[in-house]
Amino acid sequence: MSAERWLRGALLLLPDGLRPRYREEWLGSLRDAEELDVPRAAIVRGAYRTALGTPRTPAAFALAPAELGLRRLRWAAAWFAAALVLMNGGWLIPGELLPAPLASVLSTGLAALALAAAAFGALSATIGLRTLLPVRRAWLGWLLAAGIALAGAAVVLVLLGVFALGFGLLLGFVAGLGVTVIAVAWPIARDPALRRTVPGIPARLGVRRSALLAAATLLAALVVAVLHLVVWNPMAKVPGLELREIYAELAARGEFPAVGVGFALVWAASWAPLVLVLLAVATFGNRGPLRNLDERRVARTALAGLAALGFGVFVAGFSLGMSLADAFMTSGGDAAVSGPVLTAAATVAGVAACLRIIPHTTAPVEAAAG
Results as ranks from 00 to 15, higher is better:
316 A>I: 00
11 L>H: 06
362 T>G: 04
33 A>D: 11
322 M>E: 11
42 A>Y: 01
171 L>F: 14
34 E>Q: 09
275 V>A: 15
327 A>R: 09
126 T>V: 03
232 W>H: 11
153 A>R: 04
337 V>I: 08
304 A>E: 02
179 V>L: 00
361 T>R: 13
205 L>T: 09
365 V>G: 05
260 G>D: 14
336 A>P: 02
175 A>S: 15
100 A>V: 14
166 G>M: 12
48 Y>F: 15
365 V>T: 12
366 E>F: 06
336 A>C: 00
293 L>K: 00
341 V>R: 03
131 T>C: 11
369 A>F: 05
237 K>F: 04
366 E>G: 03
321 G>W: 02
88 N>M: 13
273 P>W: 01
313 V>I: 02
38 V>N: 12
194 L>A: 07
138 A>D: 14
340 P>D: 10
306 L>A: 10
266 V>L: 15
299 A>F: 10
249 E>W: 13
365 V>S: 12
114 A>I: 02
98 L>H: 00
155 V>E: 08
208 R>K: 15
191 D>I: 07
169 L>Y: 08
167 F>W: 15
81 A>I: 03
157 L>N: 05
128 G>V: 13
228 H>I: 04
277 V>R: 05
307 A>W: 05
106 L>M: 07
207 V>M: 04
237 K>W: 04
355 L>H: 08
69 G>K: 07
62 A>L: 13
223 V>I: 15
116 A>Y: 10
355 L>C: 10
285 G>C: 02
193 A>L: 15
193 A>F: 06
235 M>K: 07
52 L>K: 04
224 V>R: 04
328 F>P: 01
150 L>E: 13
53 G>N: 15
243 L>C: 05
137 R>V: 14
297 R>A: 13
285 G>Y: 00
93 I>R: 00
53 G>A: 15
125 A>V: 12
225 A>M: 07
129 L>E: 09
252 A>Y: 08
252 A>L: 15
284 F>N: 12
237 K>A: 12
352 A>K: 01
102 L>S: 07
316 A>C: 06
91 W>P: 00
182 I>S: 12
256 F>G: 06
239 P>T: 02
58 P>Y: 04
244 R>Y: 10
180 T>G: 08
134 P>V: 08
280 A>K: 10
360 H>T: 14
244 R>E: 15
288 G>I: 09
131 T>L: 12
254 G>A: 07
342 L>W: 03
365 V>N: 10
192 P>N: 08
369 A>M: 12
9 G>Q: 06
340 P>F: 02
183 A>Q: 05
41 A>N: 09
312 G>K: 03
145 A>L: 07
61 F>V: 03
109 G>T: 09
264 A>K: 08
246 I>C: 09
133 L>D: 01
59 A>Q: 14
90 G>L: 02
3 A>D: 14
53 G>K: 11
251 A>K: 06
273 P>K: 03
170 L>C: 00
93 I>C: 06
350 G>N: 01
266 V>E: 06
234 P>Y: 01
102 L>N: 00
360 H>S: 14
241 L>W: 02
146 A>Q: 05
339 G>A: 04
164 A>N: 10
123 L>E: 13
340 P>R: 05
341 V>A: 15
274 L>K: 00
55 P>N: 11
33 A>L: 08
6 W>V: 10
335 A>Q: 02
30 L>R: 01
127 I>K: 14
25 E>C: 01
81 A>K: 03
168 G>M: 12
225 A>S: 15
340 P>V: 07
33 A>P: 07
326 D>K: 07
152 G>L: 06
30 L>F: 04
265 L>M: 08
